[in-house]
């Protein structure tokens, strides 16, 4: 404590953006604060509290659903849309994040931007083809696929503020599954697997397989997806897809698990998640 000199509490988005622009590089956005409370980025002397600028809740954006950045994970878990859309994927994943008090603190935007290797929501949003909405000097909408091509801390500039994540509304029949592997229920993920399948009849039109906690950032596994898309997948297809998922990635170092074991986990859980999503 003691390094922070200023605490700004803007009431409007514009005001927040202005402060961020003015105190370039020295100001840090504070939302849920669970990461910042433990570690402040170097060089920061100002906290900009964005919890009161109306960035909470869901909004219908026509063909997509916008989750505002300061929506807490607990709020996301409790929303009817989270339980209904995509087979309840958002609610299910949100309830796997950390613990009850932390779900009340961690925000969706924070989880996506402050992404740690084991963060739970980034993989889910990536599987859903989500997009990040950024306000600031150059307002833009970035597909998560691009957003996670490198760590967001490198692509976000000092004046940028992530205001929402947009999820396309499901078209047709969509089924999903999600799993988080940890030593205990409240643990940093050793692996998360998200599978989303868009179906027409029994045929898979489109499929997302996203893995978290394998690499520093969440990843989609097109090699696994292509084993599934355009057919009515058999058990063998799923096993092949899972094997490809396990083979294509070199898991990054994690002192809790060996790489071999994490490959095995990928193989098992991708298979099981595909099976569950396509059941």
């Amino acid at each position: 404590m003691g390094r922070i000199q200023h605490y700004e509490r803007p009431q409007k988005l514009d005001e927040a953006l202005r402060i961020l622009a003015e105190r370039k590089g020295k100001a840090c956005v504070l939302a849920g604060g669970t990461s910042l409370a433990l570690r402040l980025p170097p060089g920061v002397d100002t906290l900009v509290d964005i919890s009161r600028i109306g960035l909470t809740g869901l909004e219908d954006r026509g063909d997509s659903l916008a989750i505002r950045a300061c929506t807490t994970v607990a709020q996301l878990a409790a929303m009817p849309q989270s339980r209904q859309l995509y087979g309840g994927l958002l609610a299910r994943a949100a309830l796997c994040v950390a613990s009850t008090p932390l779900r009340n603190q961690i925000t969706v935007g924070g989880n996506l931007v402050q992404v740690m290797p084991w963060s739970d929501l980034p993989g889910v949003m990536l599987a859903l083809d989500g997009q990040i909405v950024i306000q600031g000097p150059s307002p833009r909408i970035v597909p998560l696929r691009d957003f996670y091509a490198a760590h967001p801390r490198n692509s976000l500039s000092a004046g940028d503020l992530v205001t929402e994540v947009r999820i396309p509304k499901p078209v047709g029949r969509v089924q999903s599954s999600f799993v988080k592997v940890g030593k205990t229920a409240f643990d940093y993920a050793g692996l998360t697997v998200t599978v989303v399948a868009w179906l027409s009849g029994n045929e898979v039109r489109k499929c997302s397989v996203a893995l978290g906690a394998v690499r520093p950032l969440p990843v989609r596994i097109p090699q696994a997806e292509e084993e599934i898309v355009g057919r009515i997948p058999t058990r063998d297809d799923m096993i092949r897809a899972a094997a490809r998922a396990a083979g294509v990635l070199e898991p990054s170092l994690d002192f809790r698990y060996s790489k071999d074991y994490r490959r095995q986990l990928i193989k098992v859980w991708v298979k099981r998640c595909l099976h569950e999503a396509l059941a």
């Binding site: 605490y7 509490r9 504070l30 604060g33 669970t34 910042l36 409370a37 433990l38 906290l47 509290d49 919890s51 607990a74 009850t100 008090p101 932390l102 009340n104 603190q105």
Partner: peptide, 15 residues
């Protein structure tokens, strides 16, 4: 009304 872990809540944010 919501359960939080006060050790990682900034007091100023609870104003």
């Amino acid at each position: 009304g919501r359960l939080v872990a006060s050790c990682i809540v900034f007091t100023a944010a609870a104003d």
